Simulated assay, not measured.
Amino acid sequence: MDIAERTQALALKLRKQKAGIETEEATKNAFVMPFISTVLGYDVFNPAEVIPEFTADVGLKKGEKIDYAVAHDGKIQLLVEVKKVNDPLRIEHASQLFRYFAVTNARIAILTNGEVYQFYTDLDAPNRMDAKPFLVLDFSALDETLLPELAKLTKESFDLDSVISAAGELKYIGQLKRVLAAQFKQPEDEWVKFLTTRVYDGSFTQRVREQFVPLVAKATRQFLNEQVNDRLKNALGGPDAYVTVSSGSSEVEPAPAEEQSPEPVETNGDIVTTDDEIEGYRIVRAIVCSEVPVSRVVARDTKTYCGVLLDDNNRKPIARLWLNRSKKYLGVFDENKVETRIPIDDVEDIYRHAEYLRKTVVRYLTKPGVIDVVTEGSESVVTA
């Protein structure tokens, strides 16, 4: 598996297990050790590569321990400090990282709660850990643009110089993206004023502010959706393609539908891909990434359901997401490609049927010559 597939697999593990994790030690075992071993590729059971409870005396501080030190080519390169999953990460938690950073060869320090990983270096002053991370990796909302940089810290592709040279740009780009995300979600007065004064000639009074706060929020959402639509149009074959997306995602690839729906989800005949369908597609993709590269898992939206296909092939359906009704269903397929609709209460219930979805993909991989056509009318409904 490449690094994208490895991170997706760990993200799936986090979603399924983090609710049951209650201690820092459990966080290490369930999430941080798999991150070091599976994602970064270091042998957590080889003390020449991964040293748990790493000790280095710092001034008057004797016997202090840091959770993990990771070595590459015999030198300590990464320091890792762990907090309990779901605990917010604050710079105060990194006091030992600060001290150890100055007395080891490590140039990268990682503060994590198993779900969010904050990466620090010494951009502001040599041998002194910065107060702000240059990279933040959040497994609850993976930013795939960061994965090439993360790959430079793996055992197989370790390139510290490249990471350090890119850290300055990454640090500020990451901070800017987080600021923009916060403004798009809930614009502050300064942001509203900045945009309003460029389109409104009068004074920026309290009444004007109250009028423009919802307008700014609506305009930014529409702008993001239009950008997504443009990317999807290009992916679907040019400017004549049309698709409406209800949230900012460029991963779902809808296709024109032929069915008529008793409960239509489209407006003026245009297919609308809902938040639930986007999330459902991501969940299915995360589940089956253990069997195939995620690039081979494609979504096609229709008027009645959102289909998830292997290799964008209608003859290889992985699942159908019936999520636009009051009662939701997950459509799964048997070896004869007969669909069974399983009632679900929430999109996350798809995880309960992970093994079924994986087996469906495995069948296609072991029978590449199968060209059976999926029969629309031969479906059953599970009532339990």
Rank of each mutant, 00 (worst) to 15 (best):
M1E: 11
D2Q: 01
A4R: 09
E5H: 12
R6D: 02
A9Q: 03
L12D: 03
L12T: 10
K13F: 03
K13S: 09
Q17C: 06
A19H: 12
E22S: 11
T23F: 08
A26D: 15
V32I: 10
F35A: 02
I36R: 00
V39Y: 00
Y42D: 01
V44N: 00
V44E: 00
V44Y: 00
N46W: 00
V50L: 00
P52G: 11
F54A: 04
D57M: 06
G59C: 05
G63Q: 14
D67Y: 01
H72C: 02
H72P: 00
D73L: 07
K75Y: 02
K75N: 05
I76S: 00
L79C: 12
V80R: 01
V82L: 04
I91Y: 10
E92Y: 09
A94G: 07
S95R: 14
F98A: 03
Y100Q: 09
V103N: 07
I108C: 03
L111C: 07
Y117E: 06
Q118W: 13
Y120W: 07
T121H: 10
T121P: 15
D122W: 06
A125V: 04
A125C: 11
P126S: 15
N127F: 09
F134G: 01
L135W: 05
D138K: 13
D143E: 09
L147W: 14
L147Y: 06
P148T: 11
E149D: 09
L153P: 02
T154E: 02
T154Q: 05
T154L: 04
E156W: 00
E156M: 03
F158D: 01
D159H: 13
L160I: 14
L160R: 11
A167E: 13
G168C: 12
G168D: 10
I173Y: 00
L176D: 02
R178A: 15
V179E: 13
L180I: 11
Q186H: 05
Q186D: 11
D189C: 13
W191P: 03
V192K: 13
F194D: 11
Y200Q: 08
S203P: 12
E210T: 14
A219Y: 11
F223Y: 11
F223M: 07
F223A: 13
E226T: 11
Q227H: 12
R231L: 13
K233F: 03
A235Y: 06
G237I: 07
A241S: 06
S246A: 04
S250E: 08
A255T: 03
A257S: 12
E258R: 14
S261V: 07
P264F: 09
V265P: 01
E266C: 08
G269N: 14
D270P: 01
T273I: 15
D275H: 05
I278W: 01
R282I: 01
I283W: 08
R285K: 14
A286E: 10
C289I: 04
C289Y: 00
C289S: 04
V297P: 09
V297W: 04
A299P: 15
V308P: 10
N313P: 02
N314A: 08
N314P: 03
W322E: 05
W322H: 09
L323I: 07
L323H: 01
N324P: 02
N324Q: 04
S326K: 15
V332D: 12
D334Q: 12
N336S: 14
D349N: 10
D349T: 05
R352M: 09
K359V: 02
V362I: 08
K367N: 14
K367Q: 13
P368L: 12
V373R: 05
T375Y: 07
S378K: 12
V382P: 05
V382N: 10
